[in-house]
Amino acid sequence: MSSILETKGLTKSFGAITAAANINVTINEKEIVGVIGSNGAGKTTFINMVTGYLKPTGGSILFRGRDITGFSPRQVTRTGICRSFQVAQLFPELTTLENMLVAHAMLSKKRLGMQAPMKSQTNIDTAMAALSGYEIESYADAPVATLPQGIRKLLDIAMAMASGPDLLLLDEPTSGVAIEEKFGLMDTVMEAVKRSGAASLFVEHDMEIVSRYATRVIAFYDGHIIADGPTEEALNNPEVREYIVGSELHLQKPEDDQNAEN
């Protein structure tokens, strides 16, 4: 497997507070990585740095061998990394379909037209196809402000994926979604991701979801990575169990003596 994303010594500090310290992560093609860690551990900071929302204080980010440190979010998007948000970032007064149309229009290689109508039949067909890929085509004409949380999350991801990226970063895809809907949502998303052939990384608090979808887990604690390895192994890492998972979780037989390295 070849790596697509590589961060070296990535660090972010806000004044005296270090939100992320010496983060070294490698993501390989078509991999599905779960990221765990308590609140404030540096997970979102990591995603924000990789996607250009925050400028790292130190270290570098390589995407397919190219240094993208200090890129703006739109440059990062153009290189082939996209992301979803904890709170879905949509255009609330537009309809679901219009949101999708705007995403397609903006992500296409062409310049935004000033006279050609955005709602041409071809564009609508493409957008509807994209919506049905996430099973939300029935909401096409509903204004986004009226959508339920789970649908918004799906639309958020669908819009991010409209660029056909190589890497998708999902920031808590199931937060704000009812428990009984979480697995359905993740099934839909993961299926779509697999279809597209992109690698993905998702931040998640629910260990059941992590162990069900991730092939590899990275654990953050206090701005550091304390474990990085195959799901089972990482979840049973003693530090991970102490700081993040909690010892009551017994999904697998403990392998206490095995320490995952950074």
Partner: peptide
């Protein structure tokens, strides 16, 4: 409606 999303749409 949402500049952050626009930015992330490239």
């Amino acid at each position: 409606e949402n500049e952050i999303r626009v930015e992330y749409l490239g």
